[in-house]
Design a protein around this nucleic acid. Sequence first.
DNA 1: CCCGATCATCGAACCGGTTCGACGATTGCG
DNA 2: CGCAATCGTCGAACCGGTTCGATGATCGGG
Lengths: 342, 342
Amino acid sequence: MATIGDVAREAGVSRSTASYALSGKRPISEEVRQRVLAAAEALAYTPNAGARALATAQTKVLGLLAQFHEDEFAPAMMQYILGVTNTARDLGYDTLLVTEADGVRALRRVTDSRMVDGVVLMNVAQDDARLPVLRAAPQPGALVGLPGDCSGLDVFDLDFAEAGRVMVDHLHRLGHRELILISHPEHVVERGGAYVWRLRDAALERARQLGVTLHAVYGESRQPAVGRLLNGLLDAYPAATGLLINNEAVAAALPSVTYARGLRVPEDLSVIGRYSADFAATFSLSYSFIESAPDRLGSMAVRQLVRRVESAQARAEPFVVRFISPELVSRESTAPPRPHTR
Amino acid sequence: MATIGDVAREAGVSRSTASYALSGKRPISEEVRQRVLAAAEALAYTPNAGARALATAQTKVLGLLAQFHEDEFAPAMMQYILGVTNTARDLGYDTLLVTEADGVRALRRVTDSRMVDGVVLMNVAQDDARLPVLRAAPQPGALVGLPGDCSGLDVFDLDFAEAGRVMVDHLHRLGHRELILISHPEHVVERGGAYVWRLRDAALERARQLGVTLHAVYGESRQPAVGRLLNGLLDAYPAATGLLINNEAVAAALPSVTYARGLRVPEDLSVIGRYSADFAATFSLSYSFIESAPDRLGSMAVRQLVRRVESAQARAEPFVVRFISPELVSRESTAPPRPHTR
DNA sequence: CCCGATCATCGAACCGGTTCGACGATTGCG
DNA sequence: CGCAATCGTCGAACCGGTTCGATGATCGGG
């Protein structure tokens, strides 16, 4: 493999001149520049990433730390990852995907060894053990997901609280007065999944203000428990006319349940979900839903991260916590409730 | 950040001694070794990855090149990726995930710049433009997916041909004499997705031998086209009693179609799919299926790749093409056909 | 008691880039 | 015509590791 020394020799100049000719960081005569470029081309020269990293203290690689929990819905994760890798590449960075179970150790490894210029953390929990490590790291970091303490890091997330309010408002406006909200399983909350209660608490509060009855329950993440749960709820609350779903697995399972019970949406039951458009397409879901925009969140996190990586000035700016506003995508799965109950 | 020079000074030894004490590549007195280890611990020393890569010509990073096509089923991809990243980490490697649309350019970049010690290629097409580049690269490479020309690379894939035969055999043995096989969309074949016709041609051949009528058709990848297709086929071939599905999107959509038509599986229609167990769980599919074992394939590819990376002897071994035998997971979605047609 | 083998450690070179300061050759001006 | 400013190029140092050959100390054997 050709080194810059080979290029320099081929062009008949010193190594430093070759370097300057290629980088343009100092004026080089047009003639010499052309000779160097031709030599580099002829030898198919590509700079050695390790050597460059050593010299410049920049790797042009970002770390992406994702955690995969048994009870989480893997298909949703792919969207986040693609948002990150594609945006990173557009900005000139490659992505080191780390899925190690021990996130703290993994984070330490990639930051301490200077493998990456910055880190994106996914699946951030309320009290995430990785956060203190990331704050202490020399590289900047960005989070997808809202933790309890946002200090020292840029944070990006969907505004789950507002999402909960939008859902309740929408069905209240149509005339519904008794709703069911199905969240993630309880152990997701115990693990620190704050998005569960952020949406839930805001929805309960808004329902209270509006005088709407809201049955908020924890969900399941796997079949056949999901189906049992749905049937149980529809039996238990026969007067409920609307269903709010903050749980991908439940949303995916709902069509077969309504089919089996002979329920029609929205005539017998209004439904609003919270997931991504891509998820809806994959599972052929035709419910109105609040777009959770995973690719956009991943992309935003990377953009901010790269800004901080590349500019000392940006690094000095105050940290941001940016919420994406929930956007309700209408698929006509909601309608005024029928005068009599289901 | 502490360097090995800092550790050496703290321990009162030379840099080389510190290096040997930490690596154990030369005998070092127990007393000095302890001093160096203590110093490294005290300073929280972690070797700089770039410097080490430069010195050793090893990065301890593998490249994972994946391509995401609009018409492909993203959820399935996640399994492959996890198989690769988790196995790589177990073996001491991190994974650079590259999803760039221009796979050839991406591959060139990561290999020429020596960012990675080896490369796993996913979504390999019949005549994949990345293959000549990978063969010419100094790093070893492993493929997930069977191309037309396997020379110079290790290849891992499901035995799709055998899968097709197993499907036909199984239903023939139960007494079925007219079947429908739904493959991927035609443009997947045009793009070089050989697994489509590998399964299809073998199934047709076996059906011919057994005197079974097999209607082999291309599928769709999105709703509502998938639903239309299924209904159209069931109308067009009323005498067909079995359905073979080599297409994730079609498998995921089938339950709602059979529901709507009032068809019962397996009483009215026998079904066999080809997907992963994880996919079945995610989509709550209860059909018998041929396990495509994406995580196992990713894992196998990485193991072989790392063997070649780490041992000159392994590098000299002949290249392998390894097929996973299709395993039929029974979920009781097949039964003898009813005496009269559907 | 001296010599050679063994052992632990050190210094220097190297991996392949980047960057700083210096230097010689032009050029422009008085 | 001589001197200063400008321009282009070069050599050397540096980034932070690893590794080779050399060196001095310790040991055992004759």
